[in-house]
């Protein structure tokens, strides 16, 4: 079976990163504080990449991603804490229910475009949050206590799976169909692409991995509360994707890593963090609206030498 070179590079890279970090943890060099930042980083990468497939690939402007994260967090917590199911089952359940929520939200809303879609997704995310706020079974506003069960291994495996699935989807006829919608929906339709189908598929896959991220989050922080998943959280995720470059998977990963580190350093100055975030967001939009990477991937930076044959 032939696999692309990029796949092998990615696999080796992933193994090396895992081995090094696991070694540092076992050797006691990375204490709990740093382990926690690493898990947080993994969760943010998953959120960023899962929104990337919706906004960056398919061009559908969703600003309610935290809603699906909440679904994943709550349903996985119900599975492990209330039903006593093992953690992997809980994570899977959280992701699948989030995907179903994505499907249900996506079918009616994805016929809307641009600003209207954005505001509708935000509305749905708020409705999801308000539902959890009002259900006593999951603790209402006080939240739900969840045991800390995830480890760096779970979080990293989540990242690897997210990236492989979304990258494989993108580099296929299905991904091209989705990208053609971003580029020109009318032309995509005229070329035989079932645009509604691919929008819903991308939205559902995005929701699935947002749910997985939420499920890992729930089992890492002892408590989940509805306020955690408000639209500020959605904006946070949006910032990763926009800053990294709409359409660039590696860009959103880099932005998620970078901003996790920045906010860890500014953890004691949350206002300063938000001011810096918002200024960066405004400046990037004004001076480099394509984000850090544009639609390019980091791998293309190494290909310049080989190409360049055809000049127009």
């Amino acid at each position: 079976m032939k696999k692309s070179k990029a796949f092998w590079v990615f696999s080796v890279l992933a193994l090396v990163i895992y081995a090094v970090v696991q070694g540092l943890i076992s050797g006691g060099i990375l204490d709990l504080y740093y382990q926690n930042i690493l898990v947080q980083m993994c969760i943010n990468i998953m959120l960023a990449v899962s929104l990337h497939i919706i906004i960056g690939i398919t061009g559908q402007f969703s600003i309610g991603h935290a809603g699906f994260m909440a679904v994943g967090a709550y349903f996985s917590a119900i599975a492990t804490m209330k039903l006593g199911l093992p953690l992997p089952v809980g994570l899977l359940l959280g992701a699948v229910v989030a995907a179903l929520a994505g499907l249900l939200v996506g079918i009616p809303t994805l016929r809307l475009k641009g600003d209207y879609l954005a505001i509708a997704t935000l509305g749905f995310a708020e409705i999801i949050r308000i539902i959890f706020l009002n259900v006593d079974y999951v603790g209402g506003a006080a939240g739900m206590v969840v045991m800390n069960m995830t480890t760096w291994t779970y979080a990293f495996a989540g990242v690897v799976i997210t990236i492989i699935v979304i990258s494989n989807f993108t580099k296929s006829r299905h991904g091209r169909g989705a990208i053609s919608i971003r580029e020109d929906e009318i032309a995509a339709d005229a070329m035989g692409i079932n645009t509604t189908y691919y929008k819903v598929v991308a939205f559902t896959i995005g929701s699935l991995f947002a749910g997985l991220a939420g499920a890992i989050y729930a089992h890492n922080f002892f408590i989940i509360q509805p306020t955690t998943f408000n639209f500020l959280k959605s904006f946070d995720i949006l910032i990763y994707v926009v800053l990294g470059g709409l359409g660039s998977l590696s860009g959103s990963v880099i932005a998620a890593i970078f901003l996790t580190v920045v906010s860890a350093y500014l953890a004691n100055f949350p206002e300063t963090r938000m001011i810096i975030y918002s200024l960066v967001l405004i400046l990037v939009m004004l001076y480099r609206p394509t984000g850090l990477m544009g639609t390019k991937e980091i791998t293309s930076l190494f290909k310049f030498g080989k190409k360049g044959g055809t000049k127009i």
Binding site: R176, E183, M191, G192
Partner: peptide
């Protein structure tokens, strides 16, 4: 109305979408 940020080849591939039948699952795996 071309897909401006796609390569010339990919523009044609989008229109070729329906000549192949492999599923999303098949592509992901």
């Amino acid at each position: 109305r071309l897909f401006k940020d796609l390569s010339v080849l990919d523009n044609v591939k989008v229109a070729n979408h329906n000549i192949a039948k492999h599923s999303i699952i098949s592509s992901i795996l």
